[in-house]
Amino acid sequence: MAGRRSGGRRATIHDVAAEAGISRGTVSRVLNNEPYVSDTARRAVQEAVAKVGYVRNAAARNLVTQRSRAIALIIHEPHSLVLEDSNIGNILIGTNSVLSGADHQLVTLMIDSQRDSDRVVEYLRGGFVDGAIILSARTGDPISAAIAEMDLPASMVGHPSDAPDIPFIGIDNRAAAEAIVRRLMATGRRRIGMLASGLDRDSGQDRLLGFTAALGDAYDPDLVVRHQFYSYAAGMEGMEELLARDPSIDGVFAASDAVAAGALDVLHRRGVVVPDDIGVIGFDDSSWALRCTPALSTVRQPAETLGGLAAQQVLDQLSGVDFERALILPTEIAWRESA
């Protein structure tokens, strides 16, 4: 087995030095990628490492450095939605790319219950990670409060109104929602409803505020159907409810693309023609948007960039360098056939 000597003993730096015929100090400098090592010595160490099957003992290194070189990505979503929401996947890809480039390991922690929340807080207190990125935090999130209390280097993607003083990165959900709803209104729609989701977090709250601001005096609270999650099921259930409340609606703003996809399926089954009878718009420009028929008009947000910059905020804190504690990234409207 790689990394083991005869009798099951793990290969050590002494074995590498003996095989390469050079000092342990030189081996250590090569393994730590330090300068002032000749190319000949570097090649000898690399060949010796391969031959004896040496694997660096991360636990021993961590005891010396007091660093795990691991960063947690904490996702506050039910397990089923983690697989459904491509935005989460893109944020994860952006996060991992930056951490990998800095030789840090991404550790994904999912919160689907109070039990999960309690366990994750204890895990963070145990020093298993050097920092954390918090995704989809709700109002009153105990994990964010615990991280602030620990003074653990962290970043939030999004920023609930009661969030502790933790650096964050996000988008202007309110302005983006208002802009696309006004675009929908400009097509002549007059009875516009909203399938609102995620109202226990800043993104959902701000998208509803943007919808309300865009409609102004035309806003009708009876045409807002609320659901806890940004999910396909929320779109199906919400669209049925919205049609029951007012069959004359001619426009729908769904709080996410997954919600919009569920709404579109209901409309198709009922024989409602989109966009002729009802214009539908979403939010995110995720993979849902292009899978929809017709293709979905939506707000494009840079999910992968959000994850990457959140990771960089944590790395900057660990390095002690100056960084921006609050970053708001631009969005754009992707206008397609659904509206």
Rank of each mutant, 00 (worst) to 15 (best):
I143T: 08
R69Y: 13
L109F: 04
S155E: 03
A177L: 11
G320I: 02
E84H: 06
E178G: 00
I22Y: 06
N87Y: 13
D200L: 11
D316N: 08
A146Y: 05
R10G: 08
A18M: 11
E324D: 15
V98C: 10
E337P: 03
N62Y: 04
I74V: 15
R300G: 02
S28H: 01
Y219W: 15
V224W: 10
L63S: 07
F211I: 12
D200P: 02
A17V: 04
F211D: 07
K51R: 14
R29K: 12
V266I: 15
R291L: 10
A213R: 15
S113K: 09
A48W: 09
I192D: 01
S319A: 15
Q114M: 13
F283R: 06
I192T: 00
H227L: 05
P78I: 12
P302G: 10
R10K: 14
P160Y: 07
P78G: 06
D85E: 11
E332Q: 13
G158N: 05
M185D: 06
D217S: 15
L267T: 08
R191F: 08
R119K: 06
D151M: 11
S117I: 03
S197C: 15
G307K: 12
P35Q: 03
N90P: 00
H227S: 15
N62M: 12
A154P: 02
L329N: 01
Y54V: 12
I249F: 00
E77A: 15
V259I: 14
A254T: 09
